[in-house]
Design a protein around this nucleic acid. Structure first.
Lengths: 231, 231
DNA sequence: CGATTTTCTTGAACATGTTCAAAATGGCGA
DNA sequence: TCGCCATTTTGAACATGTTCAAGAAAATCG
């Protein structure tokens, strides 16, 4: 029957949660490739087919992982944004927090990519299903910009969250291959690049560069219009 | 043990070629995912296991495809480079030629990525096996720069081929989703961005921006040192 | 030429993501 | 409570990438 531990839950919802929990656990322990659906089902105490009743594919389980990480990051980032004012500081803070949040999954990410696995879908923003996920990610950077005391021209401001999101994707890739303790290399890279990004933003805001900036941004928008579904 | 990479005439070399030909054929006809190893073997008139004797994985077959494309591009690009002098023209020419060369494989590429397949390995430059392939690709852009009448500072010149190669990777991604006839959208993008790239290179070469440029390039080199194997 | 070693080829077997038809369970009105 | 329908669960079956032990063919050697 139902009831303890609060979520509004029918019978099936609990099963779903057990499966998801088992999957995330196994992802963390063994990585993506090594986590077979049979293992997930077994640990969840459920038949193989049942896992597929709730998650149509292994990849959907993966997307749940991204959601998990995203909400954790969103929460962890608020105190940081509340106390820092300069663009560079805010950016740096958000990215270090990001590393903190994903750290437990390093083994997971590395395995996932190392085995020639799929950056494919979950990393590929060019698909409608993933558009939401991407836009949520951009929102954090919009927050970063909103609270920072920099003046950027409107055209640029509009594109910046997306650009910063892409920048973070690059960092993610670097982080995956970063085996240094506490991911120090990545953290160094964050420090250096958040500085550079700040400088580049200021440079791009220079009135002298307006024509070039306009051209670049126009092209960028065209590319997005062609690949991303309409907002 | 057995090293199947053969000099031209042995028995096995013919078998290898038949398997490779069958694979490329099927890739073009049906895309990567739909091409099963069993199909490849069957069309090559060979047992399943035999395909694995020559190509340890399906992915290796894929890399052969890239090699094929690369050599074709290299050949096709020479007349273009022989007749154009400005950086923008050379870049544009090289990229349009690139589109020409890969055009027959559009269906292949689209299927490959659409099915959430693997940009993974063959697209992932962060692996030793793929480093060569990447460097060969960069060489074309080094040629583009060498024959162009632009003066770029040395530090930048050193990194430009790699940067342009990455730029081309982005174009490839765009092209995959480009269903317009003759890939006109991608060609338009090439025209616009090769122009922008030219302008950006000139901007980055400005002495006033030397400090920023130095910082960016230094960071870039660090990233590469951490991810790519040493040249 | 015959024996032996190397190269090539085969097909069965395995692991894993995924599907599916049928069985079990639960909810609920009569 | 009984019967009926939707929800949930099951396990077998399938497709495909990959491995492997063993056999066939070719090359090498004495």
């Amino acid at each position: 029957m139902t009831e303890p531990t609060g979520d509004g839950t029918k019978k099936g919802e609990r099963t779903r949660q057990r499966i998801l929990a088992a999957a995330l656990e196994l992802f963390r322990e063994q990585g993506y490739e090594a986590t077979t659906m049979r293992l997930v089902a077994e640990r969840a105490g459920v038949a193989l087919g049942n896992a597929y009743y709730y998650f149509a594919s292994k990849e959907l389980l993966l997307q749940e992982f991204y959601r998990e990480v995203h909400t954790a990051h969103l929460a962890a980032v608020q105190p940081v944004l509340a106390t820092r004012r300069s663009l560079e500081d805010r950016l740096r803070g958000v990215l270090h927090t990001w590393i903190d949040v994903i750290a437990p999954y390093h083994r997971f990410a590395v395995l996932m990519f190392q085995t020639a696995a799929d950056p494919k879908s979950p990393m590929n923003p060019f698909h409608a299903q993933n558009a939401n996920w991407r836009r949520e990610g951009e929102a954090v950077f919009a927050q970063v910009l909103a609270g920072a005391k920099v003046r950027v021209p409107n055209d640029l401001a509009q594109e910046l969250p997306g650009l910063l999101w892409t920048y973070r994707m690059g960092l993610l890739l670097f982080w995956m291959y970063d085996e240094s303790p506490d991911h120090r290399r990545t953290r160094t890279l964050v420090d250096r690049t958040s500085d550079l990004v700040g400088r580049c933003i200021r440079l791009a805001s220079n009135p002298l560069l307006r024509p070039l900036r306009k051209s670049v941004l126009a092209t960028l928008r065209d590319v997005q219009a062609a690949t991303l579904p309409a907002p």
